[in-house]
Design a protein around this nucleic acid. Sequence first.
DNA 1: TCGTGCGAGACATCCGACGTCTCAGCCCAC
DNA 2: GTGGGCTGAGACGTCGGATGTCTCGCACGA
Lengths: 223, 223
Amino acid sequence: MAVTDEAIEKIKGMIVSGALRPGDRLPKESELAAELGLSRNSLREAVRALSLIRILDVRQGDGTYVTSLDPQLLLEALSFVVDFHRDDTVLEFLAVRRILEPAATAMAAARISEQQLNALTNQLDKLGEAPSVEELVACDLEFHRGIVQSSGNSVLCSLLDGLSGPTTRARIWRGLTQEDAVSRTLHEHRAILAALRDRDAEAARSWATVHIASVEQWLRSSL
Amino acid sequence: MAVTDEAIEKIKGMIVSGALRPGDRLPKESELAAELGLSRNSLREAVRALSLIRILDVRQGDGTYVTSLDPQLLLEALSFVVDFHRDDTVLEFLAVRRILEPAATAMAAARISEQQLNALTNQLDKLGEAPSVEELVACDLEFHRGIVQSSGNSVLCSLLDGLSGPTTRARIWRGLTQEDAVSRTLHEHRAILAALRDRDAEAARSWATVHIASVEQWLRSSL
DNA sequence: TCGTGCGAGACATCCGACGTCTCAGCCCAC
DNA sequence: GTGGGCTGAGACGTCGGATGTCTCGCACGA
């Protein structure tokens, strides 16, 4: 194995074993390089790779630190990976989202706070009757993110965040080409919110399913 | 932004835009570095980072290539990320798996082939009545992977693969400390298989839920 | 006491050199 | 003519050092 890969494994090992804990500062590059038995250049490749996936946080002029290792932070890397997928796999991502989002919405029904409910209501009100497609899609993302956060599962939340990205373009496209998509989306959002306010997990789940299925159906028919 | 980060974005852009396609070979390091306007060292950091998450495949003595970009390959990086999570977030991962796995199992009920059903049967038969805990857990992973592959969604499959890793230890631990866990697991596997053979999606979904919920419940009570 | 300026420390980037590996083409033996 | 081994070009792997840039903490002066 290449020395850089070894270094990646060793640093990973130090973190997993607990020798390095979240927030800890690593030895300076030259010291760590000597410690692991490689050059600073090669070590930097390892550090750079780990920082791309948010394991390490390098701050110029300061030092290199272990991140908080929050699921949210780490799964952020997922969206980077997902960006590489072409449209032909969007359906598969959407299918997964169709599984997760209703479940998250149902979970949220039991846990969402009054405050959060009001915030979501305000958000929908603010959008008005005839928003632009871009506004609608942005609001769509924000609306679902707010709900999923209330599910109380940060892994679930990050995963959905990552999966929602690639379907964004598809949703915009849909809004532009399907006439009643905008009004239907607005209606479905209201219905989901109402179900959450009623603490009706099953209704919330169903509306969320309908919401995503309609996008899926449209996408399937137009590919 | 740092030049290396710029390079990462540019390479990503070249792939997403289609200028570089799966399997394509990149210009040699020195050329690409000149093209992107940075040194070979800095470029190498970018390439190393992208190869860690399986976007690029560098072969010493040969060249650097774009990988197949299969969802499977890219989401493999997920398991690397997931490795960093401590036991305190295992429950959240398990909760997500509890959502996805039953859905995948239900999907498989409609699509799984006779051949695959027979393979799964053989696998369970081969295990015998009183396997060791390690054998059981390995078989468990294999069994579920086989089913999820039959769901026909490679994104879903890879995601579950990534999520199953971190709970492996927990399952072994359970097998060692809970007496009837082994026999109960064997029984549940048989039940899932029977439901699949009957093409009964709902039964398959329910058994899969039960199967995971029992692990979840045990884990929750023993933390 | 507060703000500014300076300097040490750490990462960012680059250059050039040499080692190692892979592949393809040439040459020789069969 | 064909197969196998050898060799050289090309590409990645690794290294050491030099210089630029940024951040933080401390000392100084208003």
